[in-house]
Design a protein around this nucleic acid. Sequence first.
DNA 1: TTCAAGATGTAGAGAATCTACACCATTGAA
DNA 2: TTCAATGGTGTAGATTCTCTACATCTTGAA
Lengths: 119, 119
Amino acid sequence: MPAKPDEVSRNTPISRDMVQGTMEMLILKTLDLEPMHGYGVALRIEQISQGVFRVNPGSLLPALSRMERADHVRSEWRVTENNRRAKYYMLTAKGRKALSTETRQWQRQIEAISRILEA
Amino acid sequence: MPAKPDEVSRNTPISRDMVQGTMEMLILKTLDLEPMHGYGVALRIEQISQGVFRVNPGSLLPALSRMERADHVRSEWRVTENNRRAKYYMLTAKGRKALSTETRQWQRQIEAISRILEA
DNA sequence: TTCAAGATGTAGAGAATCTACACCATTGAA
DNA sequence: TTCAATGGTGTAGATTCTCTACATCTTGAA
């Protein structure tokens, strides 16, 4: 079902670096849909962003670690449908709150940026 | 957790850190209106963003240096209306092009982020 | 048996921002 | 006359997040 990263990003121009600071928000939002393992989070973000974002393990996994340390997510080992062992992450109450806070702040900021760009 | 020190405690929440990577775009846009000195750029961005962004010299001046090195702006010393010496910056052709490129990429990215946040 | 895909993880580098200073000139008020 | 506030540029060091590049293990299929 999930498209492979290469296919996603090939037809569209170039995938730039992720806007700094947004990764956590995107992960929180993705996990708000349903618990998922890291690899799944990456695929989903790439898919929904239509290849604009490429999520590599070297960014994702440290982010998940930070978030677990911050008690925004918790994790447990399970076995996937494909019979592979994977660490499933799910939001905590604190994480849900963080999601709403960060989303609100994000909105404020892009509105401010829009105001400047449209001056 | 950065302790929030001082006078910024207004009636409206608090201005968070600037989204990484957007400072250059905002500076370019500001200078696209008219040549300006650094301090003026800072004031204008704070004003138009209605206090969402605080632009401190330690971020702004290094950014302007980078941009001058990249030939996105050039500068010259002048005297302000207040009879103060200040370095006026203006866009180069390359800077104008960078502004349009960066703005386009910014749009793509916030659209992608919106798609994820609204999933 | 070998190899691609699924999955997690670490190390080190690089970029952009922040805080916290330091410095100088001009103006206005005490 | 002094002195503080305002206007203005600049640097140093820390922090934070992302990136590239690797390493490792398992499973399923050719």
